[in-house]
């Protein structure tokens, strides 16, 4: 879903957006879907995602004069705003002890035969639940890699890490996720069965 960025064109738009809201509207249209995707997968429902996306772009508009191109793409700046706002949102949610609705389970459904849909949804739900139990950084790397289809270099620009650090984080995340989905300790009351994964820690 990502397209190559014309950085000269983007720099021109950013300069215009500092003076002209219409130009900011063009930047908004360029990035709204990507930011929405990121926020949606972090919060798990449409209503809160829309509220947070609105806040992201209002904050960007309010602070665009402070944005300086230092080799970090404008999208990375937006993602960082989104990351901070989502973190605040989770902090507020945990204080109020509210568990968000998981629209994601429905969004993750795949096309298929009717009898296969329920099982497929259950598997998607289990995977998404496991992803959402990961730390924010690990969730972020998975969303940027699988939903946004960004390269490790691009993800590094957004997360302020080197390419190698992103790769390591990604590997650690996969291993943690595999263990969470396969080891019985993660869900002791149920018999674990998740896709075709096997336990590989033999004794």
């Amino acid at each position: 879903m990502t397209v190559p960025v014309d950085y000269e064109d983007e720099a021109r738009l950013i300069a215009q957006a500092k003076e002209d809201a219409e130009a900011f509207g063009a930047l908004y249209e360029r990035y709204v879907e990507r930011i929405y995707n990121y926020v949606y997968y972090r919060v798990g429902n449409q209503q809160d995602a829309e509220d947070l996306v609105a806040r992201v772009f209002y904050r960007a508009l309010a602070n665009i004069d402070n944005y300086e191109d230092r080799g970090v793409p404008f999208s990375a700046w937006l993602y960082r705003i989104a990351h901070n706002l989502v973190a605040n949102w989770h902090r507020d949610r945990s204080r109020r002890n509210i568990v968000p609705l998981d629209d994601l389970i429905i969004a993750g459904a795949v096309d298929g035969m009717p009898e296969a849909v329920a099982e497929s949804q259950e598997e998607h739900a289990r995977l998404i639940e496991a992803v959402r139990r990961l730390s924010p950084d690990r969730q972020q790397v998975l969303i940027l890699k699988f939903v946004e289809r960004l390269s490790n270099v691009e993800i590094g620009g957004i997360m302020d890490r080197t390419e190698g650090a992103v790769k390591s984080l990604y590997h650690r995340t996969l291993i943690t996720l595999r263990d969470a989905l396969t080891l019985p300790a993660a869900e002791p009351k149920k018999k674990r069965r998740w896709f075709g994964l096997r336990r590989t820690r033999s004794k």
């Binding site: 957006a17 900011f24 249209e29 772009f57 209002y58 969004a107 969303i143």
Partner: peptide, 26 residues
């Protein structure tokens, strides 16, 4: 599982309208 999702077109348009109406810096 982690597929792209798309915001509602109405939401995208309403928010753009609201942003463009907001006074720009300066």
């Amino acid at each position: 599982t982690l597929k792209p999702v798309y915001p509602r077109p109405d939401f995208v348009q309403e928010l753009k309208f609201a942003l463009v109406q907001a006074p720009a810096p300066g």
